[in-house]
Amino acid sequence: MKQVFKRPRSLKDVSFHFCPGCHHGTIHRLVAEAIDYYDLRERTIGVAGVGCSVFVYEYFDIDVAEAPHGRAPAVATGLKRALPDRIVFTYQGDGDLASIGMSEIVHTANRGENLTVIFVNNTVYGMTGGQMAPTTLLGQPTTTSPYGRDFLQNGYPIRMAEMIATLEGTSFCARVALNTPANLMKAKKTVRRAFEMQMNNMGFSFVELLASCPTNWGMNPLKANERVEKELIPYFPLGTFKERKGTDHQ
């Protein structure tokens, strides 16, 4: 009998303890599959952000460094400069990357560091219990925007992929979602492409993944997937915003 589905080699044989319907597990799998696809496990180093992302090292069967909140791109810069022939990626949520770590992500992209950033945007602080994120949509209630996000009070949700794509240093920048099988297949290819860019020394690659957080959204997983389609994608359009061609960076 042919086995058609198995645990990627780059994931440990442990069960995720993410909440039911959370997309982190799916994203872990996509990243692990990309690492396996290119046979990179033994030369890949992950950098975990702070938030739900910090548990990367519980699940990935690879070397991992934990970074202070928001600083993963700086830590990854140090690692990659010291080990230019290894594959280095950061795994960060929206609070980590787009709020406290805005400076690090922008400058790491701008320097064109040859590393990959996996950015999980679920419009909310997950681990700390559902506070407003820089990507929280207008009108979305959170524990720190109980009446819904109001732009007069809190400004607008930040579109990171579009912003990162404007930087000359960025070589690959895309946004994907995981709410439907079709989107999932696109996401899989996109994550793979990001790692491929790094393998080819093409420079900085960035993938934003729209993810659900049923627990903090106060919805069941199906409703949460619907919200991704109806509310997130209209504001955070999917697509590849930048893809440098050629064989080398610049």
Partner: peptide
């Protein structure tokens, strides 16, 4: 390798990365 970091916050964390890789930083 010399990098003029965007802030002292970034420079100390670049050290964290290079040091994790075994380099003297």
């Amino acid at each position: 390798c010399f990098i003029q970091a965007e802030s002292e916050v970034a420079s100390i964390n670049m050290i964290l990365g290079a040091s994790a890789a075994g380099a003297r930083a």
